[in-house]
Design a protein around this nucleic acid. Structure first.
Lengths: 352, 352
DNA sequence: GTACAGTGTCGAAGCGCTTCGACTGTCCCA
DNA sequence: TGGGACAGTCGAAGCGCTTCGACACTGTAC
């Protein structure tokens, strides 16, 4: 039962070869493989031996053609390098793993190609389902799929989800949790340091939801709050910190939604005498490993990439099985690590 | 000539539908699409109109089956989150873009599944070529493909490349360039701060080549040199910097091959009075944007991800066209930004 | 006027698989 | 003791495409 090593270029063995080898009909081999009909133990054994002996693997194209199912999930991912790269990667990893666990493969589609690409995939039957990451408030790309019945799962929530399944962290709730944490500690003036301006300009769904949640949470808690987009790069961050400290000196707590800027931000604050958490509190939205790797471990709501990815695949599979899924927002969890504390009201009390 | 919007679930139009619509034979439609035979302008126009009217897109599975070519490149990528994530992403982006430009799609395969996965892809005819990122010195996964004639391109160079095509930055030369830069400036004691120990333990090809190049370059230039793996995390980096400064106080120049640790490293050095570049020179190996975003912009050899990715796809396409490619190592380019300077021999001259 | 090379088009034969209906036994229960 | 139910297997049709050889023309050259 040694598996023959096949040179590519030799004709690959087909189901007919296996059938001949095992002395059965091709359809029987197919049924052994799919389990869709009962097979006697003896026959099964002979077929499996034949498969092993020939090193047979079913041809994906033929299978797709005959069964009208590709066992492929198309994953639409943004491959900008400006944002969030590690988080994107975590999503991709989680989704790929989940797909493999269900015997699906992943076709990678780069976002920011036009809608024709998706049509090509869907109408060319290149995949059985579509998972779209990083959805923006408006996604013209997806319009042609609306109501088509083709299984689509969005990671993120567009303005009009329609009948698309959506999964995501509840960014609005996450922002509220961050704000509430600062409010409980006694902060009265806070600021949101968000992603680069480009992200807002694109209308990126999660960034907007986080911002809106921040503003709503602050309003409810009666806090003064402002929002700032944070450009990356050490000098930019320093300049923006200076501007913030100058223009809004009362701010004692920051909510940061910008992983890339965190190291620079912490350095800038310390060098300006605003040590964290004594003289500036920070609550961040970022992956756990990033929160922990900072010079001051950060209180943070983590982005549950693995959970979101898993759920996205589950929803896709559900749709393949005929269920329809709605919007799912995963609840945020704040991990306290010590970067937020009660404010020292130095500016107010006066201090030598 | 309005393209009809198709509901998925409606039977998708086939080449036969288009043929009927245009009043020609299916094979004629096929030849219009492939351009493999001459077609009169009139017929072509009618066929194209029919295609547009029906919104026809060829079925990928059927096409693959009939033509024995999938128009898919399988990309084997590591999705660990411990290393190099942005760089990996740049490779993936570059490869995906290049593939699309050649009308190929990308099937994403996660590394660290067993060899059966690759066999499934190759023998199941799921892809026409394979690009493998992050290759290690020994890749048992690839053994079954050796000599098979299936187009394989490696990003990185294993110990025994055999007939696999390989592309990569010339990491050994890159290390030498870094060492030479420090040597020219007058440094005599240098250290390499490399990636996490796990990367060396895995036998990751590029890390080993960089290290070997570093040691060889230092030997040639007559420098004292040591090698240290750098664990990520702020505290680990601080501890390791302390150890270095204690155990090898004469070191005045660092070669850093560890993007993730750079912010922490710079912070640690400054807080220990070893400002860069005055009291410690640094030359790094990292992407340009990362080098520029540091608190001190770094002299760095960048990883030409886009070039490597492009070349990888070109080599894959070349193999599909019957050419065989060998190893290609791209020359390193050092970008000077001011993080390396002549050493102040403070420890030697004594200074108040 | 016949031969001959194109040129443009068609029909049919697969590519390798799944799946449906049909067929042959067995077994069990009426 | 006959018949239905069921397990196990087979053969053939067909999924939608590509591609090969054949065929009908149209010119052009002798």
């Amino acid at each position: 039962m040694t598996e023959q090593s096949l040179a590519y270029g030799d004709r690959m063995p087909t189901i007919a070869d296996v059938a001949r080898e095992a002395g059965v009909a091709p359809s029987t081999v197919s049924y052994v493989l799919s389990g869709k009909r009962a097979i006697s133990p003896g026959t099964r054994a002979r077929v499996e031996a034949g498969i092993a002996r020939l090193g047979y693997r079913p041809n994906a194209g033929a299978r797709a053609l005959a069964s009208a199912s590709t066992k492929i999930v198309a994953l639409v991912a943004p491959l900008r390098t400006d944002i969030n790269v590690p988080v994107i990667m975590q999503f991709v990893a989680a989704i790929a793993l989940q797909c493999r666990a269900r015997d699906y493969d992943v076709l990678l589609v780069i976002k920011d190609e036009g809608p024709e690409v998706l049509d090509r995939i869907v109408q060319g039957s290149m995949a059985d389902a579509l998972i779209v990451m990083d959805v923006e408030a408006h996604e013209p790309r997806l319009e042609s799929l609306r109501g088509s019945g083709f299984p689509v799962v969005l990671i993120g929530v567009p303005e009009t989800p329609g009948d698309f399944s959506c999964v995501d962290l509840d960014f609005a709730a996450a922002a509220r949790v961050c704000v509430e944490r600062l409010a409980e500690l006694g902060h009265r003036d806070i600021a949101l340091l968000g992603p680069t301006p480009a992200v807002y300009e694109r209308g990126t769904s999660y960034a907007l939801r986080f911002r809106d949640g921040f503003e709503a949470g602050a309003a409810e808690a009666g806090l003064r709050a402002s929002v700032h987009a944070l450009s990356p790069g050490h000098h930019e961050v320093e300049a923006q910190v200076d501007a913030l400290l100058r223009d809004e000196p009362e701010v004692t707590g920051l909510v940061v939604h910008n992983e890339a800027a965190l190291p620079a931000l912490l350095t800038a604050l310390r060098s300006r005498g605003r040590d964290v958490p004594e003289r500036m509190s920070i609550v961040a939205l970022c992956p756990d490993d990033i929160a922990e790797a900072q010079s001051v471990p950060l209180d943070a709501v983590s982005i549950p990439a693995a959970d979101v990815g898993r759920r996205a695949v589950e929803l896709a599979m559900g749709q393949l099985a005929g269920q329809l899924g709605g919007q799912e927002l995963l609840p945020p969890h704040l991990q306290v690590r010590g970067s937020a504390a009660e404010p020292h009201r130095v500016e107010v009390t006066g201090r030598p």
